[in-house]
Structures are given as structure tokens and as C-alpha cells.
């Protein structure tokens, strides 16, 4: 904002808002989760620059509870995918009552578990576990680079939220450089796996929390699209209204 604009605002003038989207809004509104990548590797300096954006994310008490692991070896990404798929195959007979040999017992078990784990066994991850176990859906979708986000378990307040802010910085910066990203929460299935903890060098106080696939997208998946609007309660001048 220029000095002149600032003076006018002080006088009580309405701030002018442009009709066009500004560059930041454009990046936010055009970001999509990309699940189809070109094999071309992302240059190292670009990955490091993207991580810088993550480093400058806000966090509770400025504790910065995040650490990163970058994986650019096909073999390791494939091995992780294989092990996540194996975990899904182990979970499927307990959860998927339609195909489970346990039949109604599995249905009771699955629904009871859903009471205790309402987020993990929400319809979307539930469907994904089955589809990954069946080999119909990939986990990482073949990215040349994978960024793993580790969370410091001792983080101040809500370190998961801080990690989300950090990841969003990474994802938006990547998109502004023409890259595609996709959050992969399923890396969580390897969190307690001693083999992977050792291989990736993850120790207390850090735990594997999220993964972000990174690569050049096939096509141009950045059109602006419609999305659900939500009700917002608006309190002003002693009244309340609901805006959508």
C-alpha cells in the first residue's frame, strides 16, 4: 500500500478492492490436488525454496513443530507404497463388512470402531483403504518427489494445526511455481512401523504425520471451479444474520 493510499484510509475512505484476482488469490483458487504427474524430476533448488516457505509458516508460540524429509528415490517411494498397501490389506477384513468372511461380525466391529475413530473411519478414508487394498487406487500417485512432514509431539498448543499451516505454505508455493501437489495422509499407517522409523531415521520427539506428493502435473489442472458454500454467522450492530 502506498503512503498516499494509507493517508486516504485514515481519512475514512473505503479501501479499493480490485475486480481481478490478485496473484495470491489466484494461486489459492486454482490449486487442486494433483494425482497424475510427469516423470520429470523437480530441480533441487526449487524443492529447497518451497521448503523455505514452509519454514516461515505461523505456529503456536513460534514453536515450529515441523521437520521435513525429502524422498526423491523411486525405490523408496515404491517400497513405502507397497507397505501402506499391505497395511490396508490387513485392515480390510476387519472393516469392509461387504466382502469380509466374518460377515455381520465385521459389520458390528466396523461400526463400533467408527464410534471411537469417527475421523479415521469416515466414509472417504474407509473407501480409500478398501480401494488401496484392492489395488485400484495408488497411494502417492507416482510423484518424482515426496515431502514427509514430521511433527514434534511436544509442540505448543495444537501442533497438528501448525503442521497444516506449514503444509499449506508448501502446497501454495509449489503451485505458484507450476508444480502439482497432493496431501497423502496415508503415510500415517507407517507411523508405528519400526522398519520405516529406522530407515527414515524418525525418533522421539518426532512422528510421521503427513506426506505431500510433489511433481509437474500432466495437463493444466488449475481451472477455477465451483465448490460448496457454507453458512457463516455474522454479528454486527447488535444483530445477527446468516450469509452463504
Amino acid at each position: 500500500m502506498s503512503a498516499m493510499e494509507e493517508k486516504e484510509l485514515e481519512k475514512g475512505a473505503e479501501p479499493s478492492v480490485d475486480d481481478d484476482w490478485n496473484p495470491v488469490e489466484k494461486v489459492i483458487l486454482e490449486r487442486r490436488s494433483v494425482r497424475y504427474y510427469k516423470p520429470k524430476q523437480v530441480p533441487e533448488n526449487l524443492v529447497r525454496r518451497i521448503l523455505e516457505a514452509g519454514r516461515f509458516a505461523p505456529s503456536a508460540g513460534n514453536y515450529q513443530p515441523w521437520r521435513f524429509i525429502v524422498i526423491r528415490d523411486r525405490d523408496i517411494i515404491d517400497a513405502m507404497e507397497r507397505d501402506i498397501r499391505m497395511m490396508c490389506k490387513m485392515l480390510k477384513p476387519i472393516l469392509a463388512w461387504e466382502s469380509s468372511p466374518l460377515g455381520p461380525v465385521a459389520k458390528l466391529m466396523s461400526k463400533t470402531l467408527t464410534w471411537f475413530l469417527p475421523n479415521k473411519l469416515h466414509h472417504e478414508p474407509y473407501g480409500a483403504i478398501n480401494a488401496i487394498a484392492d489395488g485400484e487406487v495408488g497411494v502417492f500417485h507416482g510423484p518424482p518427489t515426496l515431502i514427509l512432514l514430521l511433527m514434534d509431539k511436544r509442540g505448543a498448543g495444537k501442533p497438528q494445526v501448525d503442521l497444516g499451516c506449514c503444509g499449506q505454505n508448501i502446497v501454495l508455493t509449489a503451485h505458484s511455481h507450476g508444480l502439482g501437489t497432493c496431501w497423502v495422509g496415508f503415510v500415517e499407517l507407517l507411523r508405528q512401523n519400526p522398519i520405516w522409523k529406522k530407515r527414515l531415521g524418525i525418533e522421539y520427539p518426532y512422528e510421521l504425520c503427513e506426506g505431500i506428493s510433489l511433481g509437474y502435473p500432466v495437463g493444466k489442472p488449475d481451472g477455477m471451479i465451483a465448490r460448496e458454500a457454507y453458512h457463516t454467522r455474522w454479528f454486527e450492530n447488535g444483530t445477527m444474520k446468516v450469509v452463504v
Partner: peptide
């Protein structure tokens, strides 16, 4: 195949 739309809307954007 086990198919259902997860409303990612990638198709619409691409």
C-alpha cells in the same frame, strides 16, 4: 471395479 466420485473436481479443472 470399486468406483465412486470423491468430488475432487480435478476433471472439471483440467
Amino acid at each position: 471395479a470399486n468406483c465412486y466420485c470423491v468430488a475432487c473436481n480435478d476433471c472439471m479443472a483440467i
